[in-house]
């Protein structure tokens, strides 16, 4: 069985045109595997976010190829890329990007609604996803009534509820204090190790490092170092707040 959920081969990405053209990625080879938490680290401007966007099917590579569970993204139009994201990818953003007028349950349910899953079953799945991240008591709260850590947990529940093959997280602990950041890292680690998902975390946060299976360092659009199979912290017990 092929554990490679996402595969990038010789990916190059040029942004802008003419004199303003930037060679953001210069031949990236990277695979994301089931059950693995991969960290993508590197200085600002190194190409981390561009790589995340390419792997997340929001940008197509200028050359090279990206496949998501065997589906190439190269010739896909915007709607086809959206369908791949919808079916295979869960996103966690630094700024959470929750819908302020919807409750926590409704925010999570949106991820199912856009896939055509509606009604009580979808609501039930959303509540289960919130319970999984320890928010049983906050299901009917609006984002404005939640702490930053709680909001990020809602965002993770939203990313996971549709059972994606891969979770891409962009600085998920960037806006959180130590305790909340630690909880989010543990949930992401559990997602990778217990739920057998491929998880890629773009981060500067050293708190995440002990949980990682692999650390990929990028600089000037090139992978400069990849450390794998290093000892990591044991997978935590299923998370509860």
């Amino acid at each position: 069985m092929n554990d490679h959920v996402v595969e990038a081969k010789s990916v190059e990405k040029k942004l802008g045109r003419g004199a303003g053209e930037v060679h953001a990625l210069r031949g990236i080879d990277l695979s994301l595997r089931r059950g693995e938490l991969t960290l993508l680290m590197g200085p600002s401007g190194s190409g981390k976010t561009t790589l995340l966007l390419v792997l997340g099917c929001m940008l197509t590579p200028s050359s090279g190829s990206v496949t998501i569970r065997g589906t190439p993204t190269a010739d896909a139009d915007k709607e086809a890329l959206a369908r791949i994201r919808r079916e295979h990818i869960g996103f966690v953003f630094q700024s959470y990007h929750l819908f302020p007028t919807l409750t926590a349950t409704q925010n999570v349910q949106l991820a199912l609604d856009i896939r055509g899953e509606h009604g009580r079953r979808a609501a039930q799945k959303s509540r289960e996803a919130l319970a999984m991240v320890g928010l049983e008591q906050k299901m009917d709260s609006l984002p404005g009534e939640l702490s930053g850590g709680e909001q990020q947990r809602v965002a993770i529940a939203r990313a996971l509820v549709a059972n994606p093959s891969v979770v891409l997280a962009d600085e998920p602990t960037g806006a959180l204090d130590g305790k909340n950041g630690q909880s989010i890292v543990r949930i992401l680690a559990e997602t990778a190790h217990e739920r057998e998902r491929a998880v890629l975390v773009v981060t500067h946060d050293p708190r995440v490092v002990p949980y990682a299976d692999r650390i990929v360092e990028i600089e000037d659009g090139l992978i400069v170092q990849e450390r794998a199979d290093r000892p990591r912290m044991p997978t935590p017990v299923p998370f509860r707040a």
Partner: peptide, 16 residues
């Protein structure tokens, strides 16, 4: 717009 962009990032179709 930010919410619509989030929906789009999550993979929602334009029709949605």
């Amino acid at each position: 717009l930010n919410e619509f962009a989030t929906l789009r990032a999550m993979g929602s179709s334009n029709a949605y």
